[in-house]
Design a protein around this nucleic acid. Sequence first.
RNA 1: CGGGGCGUAGCUCAGCUUGGCAGAGCGCUCGGUUUGGGUCCGAGAGGUCGUCGGUUCAAAUCCGGCCGCCCCGACCA
Length: 480
Amino acid sequence: MAKQDKLTPRSEDFNDWYNAVVQKADLADYGPVRGTMIVKPYGWALWENIQGALDSRFKATGVQNAGFPMFIPMSFLQKEAAHVEGFAPELAVVTIGGGQELAEPIVVRPTSETMIGHAYSNWIQSYRDLPLLLNMWNSVVRWELRTKLFLRTLEFYWQEGHTAHATAEECDERTRMMLDVYTDFAVNEAAIPVIPGVKSEMERFAGANQTLTIEAMMGDGKALQSGTSHNLGENFAKAFDIQYLDKNNELQYAWTTSWGLSTRFIGAIIMTHGDDNGLIMPPRLAPYQVVIVPIYKNEEEQVSVLEATNRIQQELVAAGIRVKVDDRENLSPGFKFNDWELRGVPARIEIGPRDVEKNSVALARRDVPGREGKQFVSQEGLGQTVADLLVEIQQALLDRATKFRDDNTHDVENYDDFKTAVSTGFARVWWAGDNADETRVKEETKATIRCFPIAQPGGSGTCFYTGKPADKIAIFGRAY
RNA sequence: CGGGGCGUAGCUCAGCUUGGCAGAGCGCUCGGUUUGGGUCCGAGAGGUCGUCGGUUCAAAUCCGGCCGCCCCGACCA
């Protein structure tokens, strides 16, 4: 195996790097229908860890999981004007069932607000029925024209939460609460320093009064919307007649929210942390946190090395660490090192005859390549040593990503500087433009308002584009 | 849907200009060898050359239709 084709360096062709890494790291493959994706076990394991981290957070806020049909009557979509207008171009529609032409076409859900609206209008009669807090883990279908593994496929996996409330205040609070959940998850589980903020009117979800988002910067400086939380106001309640009697026996419309995070987030992890050697998984979400590579020349060494390997594996498992032992025959250790680096396993333990003799192991960290990242440590207390290292790696990834984002985010005051800024990253600007201005900026620079950050500096300034007085700052960037 | 590129082994591709036995590297299987940063040797398996038609004694190769995929644009979690 003299030379196996290497990854295209990220700096050379980020897109090519991404496509190669997704497939070579065994996360996913293309499905037979254009734009569809097969998620492979390693990729799905990552998704399961994402699900676990989110699900427990949802439940901690009182949310329960449920399942709803993937088939939605076409007429449901049409009940909310903005909603149908937004989704009509990308619907998959079933017109034949069981060999018979259907009386009414059935839509494969692109999202479930309408199905939820239907159910909630039946379930909600009284203020005592509120709040109603449900979530579902499912897949949805949107007929996208241009697709890319994890980032945009015809079908994708996600969770969609749907809540109904008695008051506008509670609704608002829940919208914000779920944004905070996503932010906490992204920062503390995925080590991705997202910017929580408010979407502009143009980027708002079809049918929402307000869309909140977490925006992340990828390794090429482009933005990725990584999770969203929508305040739907009374829009869907009015369209689906979700009404309840309040304490004064007066009929009121409910206030609803919806919020989602998809397998797109896997793309965010890949593009935030990966390097020229492949993936780097954040330890808290990594399917395998440590890989052990045993090294031996002959049978005698094999026996003692594997004995030590098993013992160490058990100790690490007992310490709550997710461990993979690579006992594949006929593959050299060097090959395995590269292989697991490509797959992004955060830490690697090498055990050879010399280690058995000296009661040590070689411990390498994925985020620091080469010799610098490798150290020889005692087998004594290895569980704790590794656990500590994983915490350190998690923090280092967050620090590095934060620095990268900050280094590539620029405060600008004029259009020329703006264009320079968005060619490599984000521009942070005072903004007082309208939709037409935003459209023009997009046409001229490909950059859009990613969000108005929740954390506003206060005060006021001058809009870089219109020259008008502005009271809020916006983050602009080119987006996936 | 507009512009460009491409369909040959599981993957990456050569062969096509000038028609004449279906190829290489990687991967896979078997045997041996090796193993502390992408081991080496040997033997194998594997293809209706996207598809339909045309030209020809003869088509992966020339001509036409269709289908599909990739990249760039418009649309998007």
